[in-house]
Computed example of a mutant assay.
Amino acid sequence: MAVRVTIEPYNVAWPAAFQEEQARLLACLSDWMPEVQHIGSTAVKGLGGKPIIDIMVGFEQEKSLNAAASLLVEHGYCYYPCFEEPPFRDRRFLALLQGYPSTVFESPDDFPDRVAYPPVFHLHLLRQGSPFWKRHLAFRDYLRRHPITRDAYYRMKVKLAKGVWESQNDYAKAKTAFIRRVERLAELEG
């Protein structure tokens, strides 16, 4: 099924939406005292992107991830264990879908229509300090410090969004080379 990607200009409401959800997550997950970080395009002032707030929730121990995912399903999130294949075995992915009840998706065939039930928040539960954790923070922080790179990334995303994709993953893969270059620059700046 063909997928279209919507890229919106930066929205000043994105940080406030993150902060509100961060407070809710910290209250819900207080037994673990996780670190909650705003990542992705909505976390970079001036960078447009898909209007979905990406959030990383970092735990001290990986064994906390399953219990936290189950608790978040009780609080309205959808859980995607079908995404826990390599290289993401150490990450739990959840999403809050507008107008859709909490569900556990064992297969992509079970996903609801993204247009009818758009994601509002994407959650990535993982161990603090893991490679995924470090990469995403380094990428975000580099774009925050380098507006020329941020603007180039935005232009590329707008151009890619004009196409039609087989899946959201195909769109994401098209950005990979750019992201890897920025991650390397962040590492060198380190």
Rank of each mutant, 00 (worst) to 15 (best):
G48I: 01
M33A: 13
W14K: 00
H124A: 03
M33C: 09
S64M: 05
D31I: 06
M56I: 14
W32N: 08
A67L: 10
F18W: 10
V120I: 14
A23W: 00
Q22M: 09
D54P: 02
G48T: 00
F88R: 02
L123Q: 03
Q22F: 04
S70W: 10
W14P: 06
E60N: 05
S41Q: 05
K45I: 11
P51R: 12
I53F: 01
S41M: 09
N66A: 08
M33Y: 05
S30C: 08
L26Y: 02
V73N: 08
Y10S: 06
G46D: 04
L47F: 08
Q61F: 12
L94F: 02
G48W: 11
A13Q: 13
E21M: 06
A95I: 07
A95N: 10
F88T: 13
Q61D: 06
V104N: 03
H122A: 00
Q61S: 11
G49H: 04
S70D: 13
D113L: 07
A17D: 10
F93T: 12
M33P: 10
G99W: 14
P15H: 00
R92P: 15
S70V: 02
H38K: 08
P118K: 14
E20L: 13
V44I: 09
A16S: 12
S70M: 14
P86H: 02
P112D: 04
K63I: 01
A95Q: 11
P51Y: 11
C78K: 04
S70K: 10
A13T: 13
D113G: 09
F83M: 15
N11D: 13
D31V: 10
P81I: 12
E74L: 12
H75S: 14
V44Y: 05
W14H: 04
L123W: 02
R24F: 14
H122L: 02
W32H: 04
F59E: 02
E62M: 05
E85Y: 11
V44Q: 06
A23M: 10
Y117Q: 06
K45G: 08
L71M: 11
Y80F: 15
G46S: 10
S64F: 00
A95E: 07
E60S: 10
E84H: 04
P108R: 07
A43S: 14
S102V: 03
V115N: 04
E74N: 15
R24E: 02
R114S: 08
G46H: 08
G40S: 08
P119W: 01
P101T: 12
N11F: 05
P87Y: 06
P9N: 13
E21H: 06
A17L: 14
